[in-house]
Structure formats: C-alpha cells, structure tokens
Design a binder for these strands. Structure first.
Lengths: 346, 346
DNA sequence: CTCAATCGTGAAAACGTTTCCAAGAACGGC
DNA sequence: GCCGTTCTTGGAAACGTTTTCACGATTGAG
C-alpha cells in the first residue's frame, strides 16, 4: 500500500490494478499483453480487477516505452475526392479490425504539408504509412520519406523500397483508347490528373501505346493534364472544341471533371455520342445516370484500400523481413454504355 | 558529458540537445515551448543546436507528461459518403492549420465501433472530439460519451453538454415541402436517412410542419427512412409507385439514394417532371447534370466542417470555460431546376 | 538424487518529455 | 547599501507503461 492513493476519481493506472490485486505491476502488464508463463489464477485475479476498475492502459505511456503506437498514418491529397474516400474507407475498416487507428493527413497537393505530415508521423511514432497518389516530383518530400525508415505502402503511387497497390491504369488507358481508335477515331482528347501523378502517367502511357500499335501519331495537344481542384477542364475542352482540329472523342476523369466536360459540351452545342464520343474514368452516379449513360473505365476501389491496409499490416508485424516490394496490380474493367459512336464523316 | 552517448544514428532527444548546447534539459524544453523569461542568447544557442540536430520532440513523451496529445478524434459513420467527406476535409484543414492531427474513426453505424472509438479517444488522451451525425438511440455510446469529459462538437448531431453545428434541415424540409404543396402536390414521398439520425428527424419535422400549415394530413406511409448502404430506396420507390395511391412527388437524399430513385422511376416507365416531381437533398454532380436537372436543397458543407473545427479548438483551448452549448445553424438553400411540375390532373 | 533448464513472479530501470523547486543574479525602491 | 521582487537557469521528480534482471520454485534428464 506504499503509494496507492485512494485511487480518487481519476483514471486508474496499472499501479492501482496491481495494488488492488495484490500483485506486482509487471504481472499486470504481462497479463494484459498476453505473455506466456502466467498462472491461470494470477490471470483471473488480475482480469477481475481490471474489469472492475475499467482499467484502460494509457497509449502515450505504451508508445513511449514500447515504441509502437498502434497508429497508421494515411497521407492523401484530398479526402473529399470520392475515389480516395472510398479507398480510405476500406483501408480504415481493415486497420480498425486489427486494432489500429488511422491518422489522416490531407495534403491538398502542397509539398510543405507533405513534409509536415512526415514529421508528424515520426514524432508520433506511427507504425506505418499509407501513401496515396501524389506528385512524385516533390524532392523534399521524397528525401524526408527516405529518412523515415518505416513500413509504407503506396496506393496508386510508387514508393521507393515499398510495395504499392495500384489499378492497372496503363492497361485501362490502352483499352479505352484502342476501343475508340477501333471505332474510327483519330483525334482523341485525354483529360486526366496532373502529369506527375502515377495514374495519369500510366494512363497516358497506355494511350500512347494504343496509338503506336495502331500506327498513329499522338498529338500532344490533345493530352491535357489537369491541375487539381480548378475547374480548368471546362476551358480546356472549349479551347479544344473551338480549335482548328477538334477531337472526335474525349476521355476524361469521372470525378468532378466529367461534369465540367459535360458543361463545356453543352455550352458549345455539342452532343454525345452524335457529335463526339465520351468515355470517363472512374465510375460515378453521374456516368451511370447521365443521358445517354457514359461508358466508363472502372476498378475496385475498396479492394485496393483493403489490400493496401493488409499489406501494410503484414509489413508492420514482420518488421523488416518482408522485402517483397513488387507492385500489386488490380485490373480495370471497361463498361460499355451509350456515349460513343463512330466519328462523324468529315 | 555524463550520459550523452555519441548520439549515434538514433533520433536525438532533448538530452542530446541540452548536452550539445551545454545547457540544462529544462532550458531546452522552455525554449521549445516558448516560455517567457528566456535570454536571447540562450534561445539562439539552443535553437542552433535544435536545427543542426534536426531535433523533433517525441509526442508520446509529451502526451504522457503534459496530458495533451494535439490530436482530435473524428467519429463519422461513413467517410466515403461525399456529404461527410467534404465536411471532414474542411475540418481537417482547419485542425491541421492549428497544429492538430485528425484521428479518423469510421463506425459504419455499429454501436460497438462507436464505443470502441470512445475508448481509443480516452486511452490516447485525445484533446477533443468531432462527432458526426449518427444514431442518437445508442444508449451505451451515449453513456460512454458522457463519462468522457472532453471537449466535443456535434456535427448535424445533438451532443449533451456540447455545442453542435448543423444545417437547418428542418427549414429545408419545410421549404421544399411547401414548394411542392404550392405546386398542387398532395401526396409527397420523403426518402431520407434512418429516423434516429438528426438531419432526418428534422427534415421530417419540417415536412410535417409544411403539411400542417397547409391544412393537410400526413400519410406516414409516404415517409420512408432508409437503412444505410442498402439499395433499399429502389424497392421502396417501386412499392410506392405500384401502390394504390402513388405519390405525385418525391423528395430524396441526393447521395446514392437519388440514383436508386432514378432507376426505380425508369424501370417503372415513369418520367420526371411529367409523371412525377423530384427534389433531392444535397447537391451532387448527378443532380446538376441529370436531364432534366434536378431541383436541390443544398447547404455549405465545407463551412460546417470549418466552423465545427474552429468551435472545437476554442473549447480545447479555453478548457472548461466555454459553456455556450447553443447549436449553430447554417441555412439551406433551395436551387430550382427542372424536375418539378404541377401534378397531373387525375 | 543432483544439476541444469524452465516457470512464475517481483523490483527497478528505462522511455523522453514537462513541471516543480530551488537558487543565484539582477533590479528597483527606499 | 539593504532587502524584497522579478529574471534566468539548473536539478530532479514526475507521467504510466514495458522490459530487463534477478531469484526462488518446479521440472526433467541422467
């Protein structure tokens, strides 16, 4: 009873438990951590007191001593992007199931926020890091990440020394482009995310490959990487449509961007699929329910989130063993709807 | 040089900083925490070493000693719901700006996950809690929350003893219903979220009020609270349409649910606004770009997230001072598009 | 029956901060 | 020039765990 004050109304500590159970602090710790070599009686006695007191170990103290916080960082550019939020949702579910908590860091595409988040990850001794698609030209961030020495998994992103889970955007881009070329299109516009983000790069690569295989040249003016958040797609499309050689088909991201594209078509008096063909990337309610419904390239977002979380947890548990950093690819699927047709005879 | 090992390649601690600067540990702490009464020379000397070593204080140790983790919990039923993800996004931005990190807990409407999250909040000594709309009949959760004694803010949710930030769903429901009644509708279906969630309750209240003011009875069969996630809206709408007295107008949530409703209309060969009027709640790309475009009740999601975060931070800083728990209401706005008409003469 | 290994437990030393306490130096009023 | 404040700093005690070390009690092999 040395220094066990009346427990007061404060939260009980492991000391209180030990005192009330008449055992040592280390025994309580061992029971709570399911270590072997514990007599059943001791276990029962301690657990009874734990339940009675409603004891919950303090994570700060645990993290300090054992250097594990049961926390996973999740760096994503924009959580309000439905593509991301669905992946995050699935990942969080998986992490929660394993007893981890997810720390969200939204970077809004600013490198300073990326490096700031890395710092938070380190200071808080997070156990792992989920890195969502982002600009891969951020050098400060890349080097900050390299010094981190922590289990990471990239999602639609390449991370040096870490595995990544990705949709096969290259094949997707290839398939969609080939389909349009097959319909007879020769001028296909591609509106995608910023060039320095993996899915866009890959998509463009697939787009080129389809052209190459068909023996066609690529007009780079038709490839329009979009700056995030800005409604620039609208003016980009207008410019293309009003240019000297307008595209006969458009491939565009399905989230937000599709809406801008539809606006641009409407305000130029152009209708799909009659005047122009339209394909979008990433299925949305809008793509499904637009009239006519829009053909879409899609993939399983939840599955990506789940796999990423599982992969990360494996790495967290195995320490530095797991050195398989090969990317895991998920297939894309092309859903044919009614937004494409052969190009109008000129 | 007592116990300052060669600093090795490990992360430097405050001890290393103190040793290298030739000062005491407490001085370093004071400088880092911007305490008053520090000579400029000392400050400079310490900061130089801090920068050189790249010292970053360990949050676990800080949390343990000072009982503040610079962490805010965020409990939300489903982060992939765009309504929520936009609010979370805005809140996170605000918190990040203030140096806090957001811990995400997705409950997926299960009370056990809610209570589990409360436990995590307590164990991790989080500094505050953002509570998004959820089932208010969960008694275990409510009592767990009550024992928490932590600054909280409810978002579209009532939290005992805490302020809340909400869209004025009651007025919104009232306005939309009155508008439809004004067009001549007498049988208006209302498809909304689960009854025990605040926005739905309020919405239904506004819906009733509009009926009462118009001297109309409410047919409760037309009010259809929807279970989350399930595509039940589809069958609900089919059932209503095929019933003896089908509605002449439908008010529905804009997220996901709207798509199901549109499907149901289509598969029953019913068109809006000719055969039936349609209004949705929560603006989406789909509502804007459907043909015809759908009249929508909307409000500022980002603003709600921002205000909630700011309010919470105030409470976190002021300790138990701030006892103003009055809800903060944000107005809704009704956007008239082309989805409504007078009911067909019978 | 002995000796080494293993079991089960307790005491105490970490972990890296903040904060309390103390003490010398500088300062201002008289 | 003396004395009470106020500055400025250092030393050491927390915070609540886990983990290392130690030690007696069992166990099993020979």
């Amino acid at each position: 009873m040395a220094r066990t004050q009346p427990t007061s109304s404060l939260r009980p500590t492991i000391r209180d438990v030990a005192a009330q159970a008449g055992v040592s602090v280390s025994s309580v710790s061992r029971v709570l951590n399911r270590e072997p070599h514990i007599s059943p009686e001791l276990h029962a006695r301690i657990m009874r007191v734990v339940d009675r007191l409603g004891f919950e170990p303090d994570s700060a103290a645990q993290a300090l001593r054992s250097r594990a916080s049961n926390t996973i960082g999740c760096m994503v550019s924009d959580i309000s992007n439905p593509l991301y939020s669905e992946m995050v949702n699935a990942a969080e579910e998986e992490l929660q199931r394993a007893g981890y908590v997810l720390m969200l860091g939204a970077t809004r595409h600013a490198e300073e926020r990326e490096t700031a988040f890395i710092s938070a990850v380190r200071r808080r001794r997070m156990d792992g890091l989920l890195l969502f698609a982002g600009d891969n030209t951020h050098k400060d961030f890349t080097s900050a990440l390299a010094t981190l020495d922590l289990p990471c998994v990239g999602i639609d992103r390449e991370v040096p020394g870490a595995p990544s889970v990705r949709a096969d955007h290259r094949s997707g881009g290839f398939e969609v482009t080939r389909y349009l070329i097959g319909l007879g299109h020769r001028r296909i516009a591609l509106l995608t995310g910023p060039a320095a983000v993996l899915p866009s790069t890959e998509r463009v690569a697939g787009y080129r490959q389809a052209h190459v295989e068909a023996g066609l040249d690529v007009d780079l003016d038709l490839v329009r990487p979009q700056v995030h958040g800005s409604g620039i797609a609208f003016s980009d499309v207008c410019q293309l449509l009003q240019g000297p050689a307008p595209p006969t088909a458009i491939i565009t991201l399905g989230t937000h961007m599709l809406a801008s594209v539809m606006d641009a078509l409407a305000s130029n008096g152009i209708r799909y699929p009659g005047d122009i063909s339209l394909v979008c990337i990433g299925d949305t309610d809008l793509a499904r329910h637009a009239t006519p419904a829009i053909s879409t390239l899609t993939w399983d977002l939840s599955e990506i989130g789940r796999i990423a979380a599982k992969t990360l947890l494996e790495r967290v548990r195995d320490g530095d063993q797991a050195q398989d950093t090969r990317p895991i690819y998920l297939p894309t699927r092309f859903i044919l709807r009614h937004s494409c047709a052969e190009p109008r005879a000129k």
